[in-house]
Amino acid sequence: MTTRVMLVSPAAGDAQREVRFDDDGPLNEAGLRRVRAAAGALPPADRVFASPSVRCRRTAEGLGLPVRPAGELAGCAMGGWRGRTLAEVADAEPAAVSAWLADPDFAGHGGESLRQLCDRIADWLARLAPDAGRVLAVVEPDVVRAAAVCALRVPAEVFWRLDVRPLTVTELSGRGGRWNLGLGWELSRR
C-alpha cells in the first residue's frame, strides 16, 4: 500500500528575513496572517507531526493541526552558528562558510553536517513506509530539502540547489523505499 507524506514548510519569521541561522524565534505578524489565511487548506491525515521549532509548532497550530513535535524532524543543528546571521559568520569565518556550502560532510560549526541531516530524514521516511496512509508534517525548509534528496536518491551536494518557499507543500508518495516527489505548491485555501 502507498504512503503519502505531505511536508509543509512553515511561515517565515524574522530569522529568515534576516538570513539568520535559526535561533528558534517565533513567527512574525505577516507570517501569522499568512498561516491563518491558509487554515483548512490541507486534506486530513492519519498522522501529523511538526518539527520542534517554535515557528513549525505555531504554523501547525495556526493551520488547525494537532501539534505533535517530533525531534527527528528538527532542522539541521547549526552548533556555534545558531542565532548568527550568515553575513556575520561569513565575515568571521569565510573559509568555513565556503566549506559548509561545498561539502555536505562539513560540521565545523559544531553541529550536524548536511549529510547527517539527510541520513536522519531518510531513516524517518524508512520508518514511515511500512505504515501506509497519509502523513502530514510541518517541517523546516532544510528538512524538506533533505527529504527531496532522499526521495530522488541524488547526492547530498544537490541540497543547496533546492529552494523551499514558506508555506508550500512538497509531497512524497511511495512504497517499498521508492518515492515519487511532488514539488512544492503554495498552501492557500482553494
Score class of each variant (00 low, 15 high):
2 T>Y: 07
3 T>Q: 06
7 L>M: 07
11 A>H: 06
14 D>I: 12
17 R>Y: 00
17 R>P: 10
19 V>D: 15
23 D>H: 09
26 P>T: 06
28 N>C: 09
31 G>L: 03
32 L>V: 05
35 V>C: 13
36 R>I: 00
37 A>P: 13
44 P>W: 13
52 P>H: 03
53 S>N: 00
62 G>D: 01
63 L>C: 02
64 G>L: 03
65 L>H: 00
67 V>T: 01
68 R>S: 13
68 R>Y: 07
68 R>I: 09
69 P>F: 08
71 G>D: 14
72 E>T: 13
73 L>Q: 03
84 R>A: 04
89 V>T: 00
91 D>S: 12
92 A>R: 03
93 E>N: 08
95 A>M: 08
99 A>K: 11
99 A>D: 14
99 A>I: 00
99 A>Q: 10
100 W>K: 13
109 H>D: 13
109 H>E: 06
113 S>K: 07
113 S>Y: 09
115 R>N: 11
118 C>S: 15
120 R>E: 07
121 I>P: 02
123 D>H: 10
127 R>F: 03
127 R>Y: 07
136 L>I: 08
139 V>T: 07
139 V>H: 11
144 V>S: 06
145 R>L: 08
145 R>D: 14
148 A>F: 10
151 A>L: 02
153 R>D: 15
153 R>S: 15
160 W>Y: 10
164 V>T: 09
167 L>V: 12
169 V>W: 10
173 S>F: 02
177 G>L: 01
178 R>L: 14
180 N>Y: 08
181 L>Y: 12
181 L>T: 10
185 W>S: 09
185 W>E: 11
185 W>F: 15
186 E>K: 14
188 S>V: 11
